[in-house]
Design a protein around this nucleic acid. Sequence first.
DNA 1: CTAGGGTTAG
Length: 645
Amino acid sequence: MSIAIHSHHCHTLLTSCKNLRGLIQIHASFIKSGVDTNSYFTGKLILQCAISIPDALPYARRLLLCFPHPDAFMFNALIRGYSESHEPHNSVAAFVEMMRKGLVFPDSFSFAFVVKAAASFQSLRTGFQMHCQALKHGLDSHLFVATTLISLYGECRCVEFARKVFNEMRQPNLVAWNAVVTACFRGNDVAAAKEIFDKMLVRDHMSWNVMLAGYTKAGELESAKRVFSEMPLKDDVSWSTMIVGFAHNGSFNEAFSYFKELRRAEMRPNEVSLTGVLSACSQSGAFEFGKTLHGFLEKTGYCWIISVRNALIDMYSRCGNVAMAKLVFEGMPEKRSIVSWTSMIAGLAMHGHGEEAIRFFNEMTQSGVRPDGIAFISLLYACSHGGLIKEGEYYFSKMKRVYHIEPEIEHYGCMVDLYGRSGKLKKAYNFICQMPISPTAIVWRTLLGACSSHGNTELAEQVKQRLNELDPNNSGDLVLLSNVYATVGKWKDVASIRKSMIVHKIKKITGWSMVEVGKAMYKFTAGEKKKGINVEAHEKLKEVILRLKDESGYAPEVANALYDIEEEEKEDQVSKHSEKLALAFALARLSKGANIRIVKNLRICRDCHAVMKLTSRVYGVEILVRDRNRFHSFKDGSCSCRDYW
DNA sequence: CTAGGGTTAG
């Protein structure tokens, strides 16, 4: 009787407790009333500590160790807690400790949790060991254990083992079927996934959604579309999977149409589809559609969801309107997460507002939000794009010293960019040589880019040698090296690169640019066949170039042309760059005085940059170009990047 | 008294 009363009391006490302090008080009351020796109550206490209270895992562990004969429930609570924490390897340690005691045997729960931990850090070795132990205890075919083993093998890209475990199950349920299909997709075995799916006799929503997610992740969008049209019932997950899937694959217009269709069907979009469609706007620079969405989000109240608001901040800054991004950010006074701050810092960085980005960073730390690795990447990126070398060095050292965040390769990459961009090429080179982790191709490529903008052929050749060891046939690197030679007029070297690219069948990445006219996005590709909007763009471009030559003495800069060809031909090649076509098209179609927004997949070239500057003055328009790295805002003949990019 | 499969912003 007294236990029953206590049990109810204990339950309400524990579920209402949200922090460690409260939990310690409950523990104290347990000791006072003498139930601290009761394994049921202590088990509950450990579970609460391990999974519901942040940073209370060490306390949970001590509770268990202090208990005379901890039972399986207690160990399971600890194993589960660690498996969901940022230190899942401790889950395995707790499991081993349980086995070592020899008095408690692991049960199906223990295996399910520990296998999940192994899956989270993708350790096939640990997975195998746990699988063997499960086999020893006769639990390897247990419904839940086997299902987690299937996901583990999926995470580790071991489709064969996943299928083996599945085939040995006596009565796999729907969840197990879905898990094995997912495992096939994870291991890139799309054919096997389809084969198993076709064999399924019973399929609910989830199975179809598994197929949608699998196909979109594999980039098989046509198959995803087919499944989507065939599935008997589409829930909100189905819709969001399509929107997110298409957005990730660069099919922004299709992502938009799925969203529009969802709204036409009068369904309620969820958080995921909203962030997905906003991400499609961000990536493609669809500012007008983004604004329309913002209106809808305000009207419906969706913009009070933090993730949606963060995506909105990102949308505005990537669409070139950092002022709107700030407004959205400032409208969420209390609940700003690390993501909100980082989006804002990254947005300011992209626009070259280095000092302001630093101010935001400091404000963030003062408000009690702890920066993480990604926040530092944005901050360092802001320093390098703003030419703030001293500041960059200061925060880079602070990262380790104050916040105990070990710099990763991306951080080192930012520092190389910081030195290289400002012309301190030797310093950048020495920095790479002294890095405690080995540099990746991306790091060397950053330096190669800096050599290219500062015309240092000698170092560029040295760097290319390093790149040859890591990623020999990268087209971008060859183009960069060729640009260095072209800058100093070494046309023979340019020609030899051209030859080797032909011999090795290495193709340049085709540059494309998108421009928004009305509410539609138009895409232009360099060297495309002249038809449709392309004809219009080319004709307008001829006129624009003539006017620029006439009124502002524009002379094409051909250094970035790849080949050793006649001057006239080089000029012709540069004049076909996609951003120029997009610009001309916008000048032809947009009403006078409207801002022009262009998004490009590669870095903008020198000549295009010059043309944009002159056009902004001669035509009296504002032009915004987002290239691979940052924003360029052209106004009255100059650019916000101060020619520093 | 505790589980397993699909979509989530920097």
